[in-house]
Structure formats: C-alpha cells, structure tokens
Computed example of a mutant assay.
Amino acid sequence: MKTLYIVRHAKSSWEYEGIKDIDRPLKKRGINDAYLISGVLQKKIACPDVFIASCANRALHTAMIFSYTFNYPLANIKISKSLYNFSDGYLIKTVKALDDGFDSAIIFSHDHGISDFVNKFGDKLLNHVSTCGVIGIKFETNHWKNIKSGQTFLTEFPKNYK
C-alpha cells in the first residue's frame, strides 16, 4: 500500500510589486495556517517518508513549516522545479516516479494540479482545494508507477479549525 498526502501551499502575498510569481512569499495568515494544519496532521498521521516541494517560495516555505512540525530534516526536503507547473501532468509524473522504498509521501504544490489530481485519483470529488488544504489518498499497490484509483481518506482545511 502507498499513501500520498498532497498539500496546496499556504496563502501567499500579492502585495509586493515587481516580484516574480515564483518568489511570492507566504502571508502571515498562510504561515499561521501552515502551523495549524501541520499540527493537526502531526497528531493524526505518522511522518511521511519523503517530503517533496515545488521550487516556488510559497510551496517551499509551507513544506519547511510542515517539516519543522514533523521533525523531518529540512535538508531532506526534495525540491522539484517540475511541480511549479499548474497542471496535474507534472504531479502525476512526480508521484509515479517516487522510489518504491517510500511507502508514504507528502507533496507541496499548486492549485490546479492538485484539484485535478485528487479528483482523478481519489474517490471523493472535491471542487476546490483551498490554500493549505491537505488531501490523503491510499493506493492498493506496492509500486508508485502503478497508481490508479485510490481511496481519499483524509481532507483537512484550515477553515475547519477556526
């Protein structure tokens, strides 16, 4: 069995002029939400075997907060340039390329790819994954490359704890 957690990056800031999209930082609300949801998650699940984040500042910062909460070494976070793409194609390729030695993974990425992915591979229809939302899907396979339809067993959103 393989277990995947997908996290949409926390709320980012649009207030800085001239900054590239990839460099946008988290807002204070986003930082607070990342600590909140990572704390909720840490009480419900074991630490995932591998953390993978989009190279965008907002996704990487979200991953760093989760890694702190889970006591996962920052140096072990894998950074993926291909996850900074807003389609599920790169997310699917990333997941299917995971090392089979990892039974669980947590991926920090972006809106469109996440919503498409969880609706394609999970069994619970989600219209929209909000910022800092976490979706957990279990797959009855021993090989990441063979994932097909899975069971959506976890949905956590900051609004449920405010």
Rank of each mutant, 00 (worst) to 15 (best):
W14L: 04
K11N: 03
A46H: 08
G39S: 15
H110K: 07
G113C: 06
F86R: 08
D103N: 15
K138Q: 11
A63V: 01
Y90I: 05
G133D: 04
R24C: 01
I114A: 04
S12Y: 02
N146F: 05
L125M: 12
S38A: 13
W14N: 03
G30K: 01
I92E: 15
G122T: 00
K120T: 13
T94M: 03
A59I: 06
G30D: 10
E15R: 11
I135K: 10
I65F: 05
L36Q: 11
S54W: 12
V50T: 13
K148W: 03
S67N: 09
I77H: 09
L91D: 07
F117H: 10
W144F: 11
K120S: 12
S13Y: 02
A75F: 02
S149Y: 05
K159I: 15
I45L: 02
I147K: 10
K11T: 08
Y5R: 11
V129R: 02
S149V: 10
Y16I: 15
S87A: 11
S130P: 13
N142D: 14
H61R: 08
C132M: 13
K124E: 07
F153V: 13
V95N: 11
F70D: 05
L91F: 09
I114T: 03
Y5W: 09
K28G: 07
I107R: 01
K96G: 07
I92G: 01
N71H: 13
L126R: 04
F66H: 10
T62A: 04
I92N: 08
I65G: 00
N119H: 10
F153P: 03
F108W: 03
G150C: 08
I6G: 01
T69W: 11
V134H: 00
S109V: 05
F108Q: 04
K138V: 00
A63R: 05
P48R: 09
S67Y: 10
H110Q: 07
A10T: 00
F121A: 08
K96Y: 08
S54L: 05
K159C: 04
I6N: 06
S54Y: 12
T152L: 12
T152Q: 13
D116L: 12
G39P: 08
P158Y: 06
K78E: 14
S12D: 08
G136A: 09
W144I: 08
S104A: 09
L126N: 06
A56N: 07
K162C: 09
I107Y: 01
I52M: 03
K20F: 01
P158V: 06
M64P: 00
K11C: 02
G133Q: 06
H9M: 10
S104E: 14
R29K: 15
L83V: 09
G30M: 05
Y161L: 06
K148A: 12
A59V: 09
S80Y: 03
W144P: 06
F70T: 05
K27C: 10
A34P: 04
F102R: 02
F157Q: 07
V40H: 10
N119P: 12
Q151A: 08
K28A: 15
A10W: 02
T62W: 12
I19M: 13
G150E: 01
I135P: 04
K124A: 02
D123F: 10
S82F: 01
T69A: 14
N142W: 00
S87T: 15
H128L: 12
G89M: 01
K148N: 14
L125R: 13
F121S: 07
K81G: 06
K93Q: 14
